[in-house]
Design a protein around this nucleic acid. Structure first.
Length: 383
DNA sequence: TCTGGGGTCCTAGGACCC
DNA sequence: TCTGGGGTCCTAGGACCC
């Protein structure tokens, strides 16, 4: 989708369509999306709200409506699946489709692309762009170049000619750090990188990363898709984090926030039927220095108290008195909860907290999320 | 008043095991 | 007397993506 969040929010606000609009970027926040008029002022997603206001003070600022974004996303993904089941959802607003096998039933890739764009515009009143190519990363590059509201095809025999003049930073997976590293040894274009011997790249970037970059430079990365997370292939991790509106060094406040985040994460895990063994916390100090600490438990858990206790233990072990900007809780090593329940019951390590969680989940489903929560979270005096 | 929140994958070193 | 090679798991950090 083109400027997804902005496009969705402007569907029913035609009067804002031609003026600069920024989604997000409130207090301590970053820009989540900017419409094209705002981009003309240099506003980009990911930039701090402060910078965006400096570049374009007259922009209209809107708060994101994720409920709407998710609804549109579901509908768009459904449209994709009308073409083929081989859809790899990459984010809320982006997916890869393998259309090799649907030529007879649905038409050429170009025809499929135009059908998708027309259908999505009819149903959701937002525009999108399509890149067509033989591999995931080249298709991704092509779609970026097709924006806004366009289609670009890069046939296999034209891939190398297309890629090699580009700046390496354009490659899907090459960010500022890698680009700078390559620049330091005089590699500017994708062609420069392609001509470097593979072992040299691997020595510089590590074996897997080096190989991957080499593939990207020749347009030979993967062409098969992994359609969907399944029970055999669940999410690897789930986490929640939040930036305080004011930095704090108060351990009670931090512990309470860890409790809130642990509850949020484990609720999502329980809803997905997942449990995990490794609890990780993330701490960002006022100077933006960010660290993680993690510990693996003997058995997987989805119990909020177990995760919170471990999170607090990890934080306490830091022994820090520094002011903190952000805390986060993440559970890694997720697997299906099937078979985990019995093991926990035998150990009785969670002493009824599992049942408490279940009751909270049920109350939440019936009366709204957060209806029942730990008493310490009722007085909401987080800074 | 600079710098969100949700993820994935890779690297490197050390412990540990056969 | 001098100590291999292969593998897994754990932890911390980092790069990248939307």
């Amino acid at each position: 989708m083109d400027a997804f969040y902005a496009s969705v929010m402007l569907r029913d606000r035609p009067e804002l369509r031609d003026v600069p609009v920024v989604i997000g970027g409130g207090h301590r926040g970053v820009v989540l999306a900017a419409n094209y008029p705002a981009r003309a002022f240099g506003v980009r997603s990911g930039m701090s709200g402060t910078d965006a206001r400096r570049l374009c003070p007259q922009a209209v600022r809107l708060a994101p409506d994720y409920v709407d974004f998710e609804a549109v996303s579901r509908s768009v993904m459904e449209t994709f699946r009308q073409v083929t089941p081989l859809v790899e959802a990459y984010s809320l607003d982006e997916a890869f489709l393998d259309v090799r096998a649907v030529r007879r039933s649905q038409g050429t890739p170009l025809q499929v692309a135009e059908w998708l764009r027309a259908t999505i515009f009819d149903e959701q009143r937002i525009t999108c762009s399509v890149g067509l190519a033989g591999t995931v990363s080249v298709a991704k590059l092509a779609s970026r170049r097709a924006k806004p509201d366009g289609v670009l095809m890069v046939p296999p025999d034209r891939v190398v000619d297309y890629l090699h003049p580009l700046d390496v930073g354009e490659l899907f997976g090459v960010g500022p750090k890698t680009r700078a590293k390559l620049l330091r040894i005089g590699l500017v274009t994708v062609g420069d990188v392609a001509r470097i011997p593979l072992p040299t790249l691997q020595q510089m970037l590590g074996s897997a990363t080096g190989r991957h970059l080499h593939e990207l430079a020749w347009g030979t990365d993967r062409s098969t898709l992994t359609p969907r997370r399944s029970d055999d292939d669940p999410e690897r991790s789930m986490g929640a984090e939040e930036t305080f509106s004011r930095d704090t060094a108060d351990p009670a406040v931090i512990s309470r926030e860890l409790l809130r985040l642990s509850g949020k994460v484990t609720a999502r895990m329980r809803a997905a039927g997942l449990a995990g063994r490794t609890v990780a916390i993330r701490i960002r100090y006022s100077n933006f220095e960010t660290i993680t600490r993690s510990r693996s438990l003997p058995d997987p858990t989805d119990v909020s108290t177990v995760v919170h206790t471990e999170a607090v233990r990890l934080f306490t072990a830091l022994g820090t008195q520094r002011r903190i900007r952000l805390v986060g809780v993440r559970v890694e090593g997720l697997r299906s909860r099937v078979g985990v329940d019995r093991q926990l019951a035998l150990g009785e390590r969670d002493r009824g907290w599992r049942e408490a969680d279940r009751a909270v989940d049920q109350a939440g489903r019936r009366f709204g999320r957060g209806t029942v929560r730990p008493a310490t979270l009722i007085r909401s005096d987080r800074p």
